[in-house]
Computed example of a mutant assay.
Amino acid sequence: MTESEKNEIHAHVQAIAAILYKDTESREPEKLTSLEGIEIAVREQMQNCVSKDIGIFLSKQAREQNLVGEEK
């Protein structure tokens, strides 16, 4: 991964974090008052929003690679 790609990922992660923070703050602001609450909120957001989409992306990539391998 190039330095440019790392910087791009960092910028996107910062944007995602801002959205998820705003969402948690508007729905459950009490979670943002302790380290435990923040950890729970981050875990929930990762499971509900981020991990699911990454998993879907990775499974599509794996299927495409399998299809390409089968064509040989």
Rank of each mutant, 00 (worst) to 15 (best):
H12L: 00
R27I: 09
E30Y: 09
T24E: 02
E64F: 05
E64S: 01
M46W: 10
Y21V: 05
S26Q: 13
S34R: 04
R43D: 13
E70Q: 11
I38Y: 04
Q47S: 12
E3S: 10
A15S: 14
C49V: 11
L32H: 02
G37D: 03
L67H: 03
H12P: 03
A62N: 06
K72A: 00
S51L: 13
E25L: 15
G55L: 07
A17D: 07
I54G: 05
Q14F: 10
V50Q: 03
D53E: 14
S4K: 10
E39D: 13
T33S: 13
A41E: 04
K6I: 01
A18V: 06
F57D: 08
D53S: 11
L20C: 03
Q47V: 14
K60G: 06
G37M: 04
N48M: 12
T33Q: 14
K72P: 00
E71H: 07
E39G: 07
E64H: 00
S51D: 08
L32C: 03
K72T: 01
V68M: 08
Y21P: 01
H12E: 08
T33P: 04
I40D: 10
R27E: 15
I38H: 01
E25H: 15
L20R: 02
T33G: 06
E64G: 01
C49N: 11
T24V: 15
A41P: 01
V42R: 02
L32E: 02
K22V: 08
E36S: 09
E28M: 07
D23T: 11
T2W: 12
V13P: 02
N7Y: 00
Q14G: 08
N7D: 06
P29M: 05
K31F: 12
G69H: 11
E5F: 09
A41C: 03
Q47G: 09
Q65W: 10
A11V: 10
P29I: 04
L58N: 09
E3A: 10
N66V: 00
S4G: 06
L35I: 15
N7I: 03
P29T: 05
A18Y: 04
I38N: 04
Q45F: 06
S4W: 00
E8F: 08
V42L: 12
E30L: 13
L32I: 02
M1I: 12
S26I: 05
T24Q: 04
E3M: 15
M46I: 13
